[in-house]
Amino acid sequence: MNIFRFAGDMTHLISILVLLLKIYATKSCSGISLKTQELYALVFLTRYLDLFTDFISVYNTVMKLVFIASSLAIVWCMRMHGLVKRSYDKELDTFRHYLLVAGCFALAVLVNEKFTFQEIFWAFSIYLEAVAILPQLVLLQRSGNVDNLTGQYIFFLGAYRALYLLNWIYRYFTEVRFSRWIACVSGIVQTGLYADFFYYYFLSWKNNAKLQLPA
């Protein structure tokens, strides 16, 4: 495992911890899209079907279980926990996420590495992860104000994507058998979606001001 990949995994983990911290410490999920969180839970559940068939390393297995458990915990809190549930911006979180699920599934059936149950769901999870942030970005855009922890959550998610791109570039040049074009193309799309957010995040950081997105 190279340094970019490891740093990418860690920033991914940190982003989830920041989100859990926000929900736990403030007992609020304002500014967080339940739809995006549900999509992530679906991403992990469909991608890690190989937990039952392949063993890669203890690190790999533990991280997969952590991602599945934490994403389900976040969805559970936002749906079931009284205080957290009340702070959810339901009327702003109206992105039609089922369209993303349907589109990604259709694409996975058409474009996959092999036409098998597991490979189709793997491709589906890669496509869905690329666009799963959209309901979250739309919610932020609508609410305008972004609190610090929410801003940091998205910042770390974006950093994870950027580091994975560096990881693929590194692997492309150092490993003969490395080919992950489905993941690479989806990863580039996904990282691109963050570019706009990063721009405003950088501006607010530079001006030492609260992050505000233009209407």
Binding site: H12, D54, I56, S57, N60, K64, W122, Y164, R177, A183
Partner: peptide
């Protein structure tokens, strides 16, 4: 026949 690369990423 080349062996397929494993999906070792998260």
């Amino acid at each position: 026949h080349e062996q397929e690369p494993t999906k070792d990423e998260l």
